[in-house]
Simulated scan of single mutants.
Amino acid sequence: METKPKTAALLNARPPYGHVIASDKWRNSSLIQSLNGGGVKILFENELGVADFHLPNKSYILYVSECDIIAGNTYKRKLVRYRNDGGSFQQLVLVENTRLCEQYFSAVQKFVVFDLGLTLLPVSGQTEASQLIAQIVHGDGRENPFRRKTSSRLSDPLVLALVQQVPGVGRVKALALLQHFTSIQQLCNAAPTELEPIVGRAVAQQIHNFFHKPSGAGT
């Protein structure tokens, strides 16, 4: 009878400033060791639900490793559960982009950002992930792009950076797209003929192909 209220409370737990609540499965990881070295205090819990970490600025983090990606589509089901369990918290997805899994990264990126509407942050591994988490924790949310739940807006710096990863799109073209499309959904649904006046025929076709190829491709 007491399990449900306890679990519900943990799923919405917000750690104090300078702390991170981490799923117990991360206890002996290099990520946790790096966080401790960065001055972040860790509270371990084995009932966090799908999320791997809770941050003090009302953010969750789910970590998708190269092993998760290479193993197949199981990570997609986990991401869907994560999205559905978010509540009022900002949901971040840290995805390893390594040499072993880089061929799958664009498909993962499309699924996380465009299919689920979550914020994706690529990392090279657990060390970079710990640095990013420490930065968010010590920033306490002030002037922190992760605090705003605007992951679908092209004006969000994170989304702007993501758009630049589309083949053929650099910062200049991404900013030009920003002037014409107010959301990821509009950009995703744009026909090549709508994109061509902004970025040219070849890049317009690349953008269209990026958004419309099957999200499961390569997995």
Score class of each variant (00 low, 15 high):
residue 135 Q to A: 09
residue 151 S to E: 09
residue 93 V to A: 03
residue 145 P to Y: 06
residue 161 A to P: 02
residue 142 R to Y: 07
residue 67 C to N: 15
residue 159 V to M: 15
residue 183 S to L: 00
residue 84 N to A: 12
residue 76 K to V: 14
residue 142 R to W: 09
residue 139 G to S: 07
residue 183 S to C: 01
residue 100 L to G: 10
residue 101 C to M: 12
residue 105 F to K: 03
residue 85 D to G: 13
residue 133 I to R: 07
residue 101 C to N: 15
residue 141 G to T: 03
residue 128 E to N: 03
residue 102 E to C: 08
residue 111 F to S: 06
residue 81 R to I: 03
residue 87 G to D: 04
residue 62 L to M: 03
residue 99 R to C: 11
residue 71 A to I: 10
residue 145 P to A: 07
residue 166 V to A: 06
residue 89 F to L: 14
residue 107 A to C: 09
residue 129 A to N: 07
residue 104 Y to K: 14
residue 180 H to M: 00
residue 107 A to D: 06
residue 109 Q to D: 14
residue 81 R to T: 06
residue 78 K to F: 07
residue 180 H to V: 00
residue 180 H to G: 00
residue 83 R to S: 12
residue 94 L to I: 11
residue 68 D to G: 02
residue 182 T to W: 00
residue 103 Q to W: 09
residue 141 G to N: 03
residue 77 R to I: 09
residue 169 V to T: 04
residue 167 P to V: 09
residue 87 G to N: 02
residue 76 K to H: 09
residue 135 Q to C: 10
residue 161 A to D: 07
residue 161 A to I: 01
residue 161 A to L: 06
residue 95 V to I: 10
residue 145 P to H: 05
residue 157 P to K: 00
residue 153 R to F: 00
residue 158 L to H: 07
residue 59 S to K: 09
residue 64 V to G: 10
residue 161 A to W: 02
residue 173 K to V: 01
residue 80 V to A: 08
residue 130 S to D: 11
residue 146 F to Y: 14
residue 57 N to G: 10
residue 142 R to A: 08
residue 175 L to A: 05
residue 183 S to G: 01
residue 97 N to S: 12
residue 103 Q to H: 14
residue 117 G to A: 12
residue 104 Y to C: 13
residue 126 Q to H: 11
residue 141 G to M: 06
residue 134 A to W: 05
residue 83 R to L: 09
residue 138 H to D: 02
residue 161 A to E: 11
residue 140 D to G: 09
residue 138 H to R: 05
residue 168 G to T: 02
residue 166 V to Q: 04
residue 143 E to F: 10
residue 144 N to P: 02
residue 148 R to M: 13
residue 78 K to D: 08
residue 140 D to Y: 12
residue 95 V to H: 10
residue 154 L to H: 00
residue 131 Q to W: 11
residue 153 R to H: 00
residue 104 Y to S: 15
residue 125 G to P: 02
residue 69 I to W: 02
residue 182 T to N: 02
residue 65 S to R: 07
residue 68 D to L: 08
